[in-house]
Amino acid sequence: MTRILVVAESALRELLRRRTVLIILLLFPLAFYLSRRGDHLGQSIRFVCLGLGWALSTAALFAGSAARGMEPRLRLSGYRSMHLVLGRLLALWAVGALLCAPYFVLILVDQHDVRYGAIALIMVLTVAVAVPFGLLLSAVLPRELEGTLVLLTVVGLQMVMDPASTATRALPFWFSREIGTYAVDHTDSGYLTRGLTQGLVFAVALTLLVVAAAAVRLRQRRHLRIA
C-alpha cells in the first residue's frame, strides 16, 4: 500500500507542477459549457461532461507517456506493475475529482430543474472512464501524437453520432449522453440504467486493460532469473 501511495503522491506532484497544463485543463470544459450556454441549457451540461472526459483523457495520456521512461527503473527498484498502475490511477482520479467539483457547483448555480444527483453520477463515471482510457492509449500508442489523434477521433465521433444508434454504445462516453438526457429532460429511469451500466462496464474493462497492458510491458523477461 505504501508503494502505491508514494507513486500516487509523486504522480500528483508532477501533474500539479505543470501549471499551464492545469489551467488549460480547468478552462477546456468551460469552453464546451459556454458554447451551448446561450441556446440550450441542457445541451451545455452534456457538452461540459464530454469536455471533462476529453480533458482528463488527454491528461492521463500525457502522464502515462511521460512515465514510460521512469517505469522500468521503478520496476527494477522493487515496484510491481500493479503498484505503478494503481498509484497513477489514484493520482489521476483525484485530479479528475478536483476538476469536476467547480463544474458541478457551476451547474448547481446556473441550471435549474435538472436532476443534480444524475449529473454528479455522470461526472463520477466520466472520471472513472476517462483516466484509464487515456492511460490505455498511452500504453498502446507510445507516441503522444498518435494517442492524441485517436482521442480526438473518439470524442469527435461521440459528439456527432446519433446517441440513439447502437454503434455509439461502443464509444466510451456514451453513458454521458444517456444519463444527461435523464438528468435534463426528466426521461424515465431506463436512460439512467442503460447509461450507468455502460459507464460501469467501460470503467471496469478499461481499468483491467490498463493493468494488463502494464503487466505485459513491465513483465520480468523470461531470460532473467533473479535469485
Binding site: 522500468p72 527494477l76 522493487g78 520480468q220 523477461r221 532473467l224 532469473r225 533473479i226 535469485a227
Partner: peptide
C-alpha cells in the same frame, strides 16, 4: 537488467539489481 529480451541466452542474478 531484464529491460530487453535477447534472441538467445540467459542471465542469472543473485541479489538485488
Amino acid at each position: 537488467a531484464g529491460l530487453l529480451s535477447p534472441d538467445a541466452g540467459t542471465v542469472q542474478v543473485h541479489g538485488a539489481l
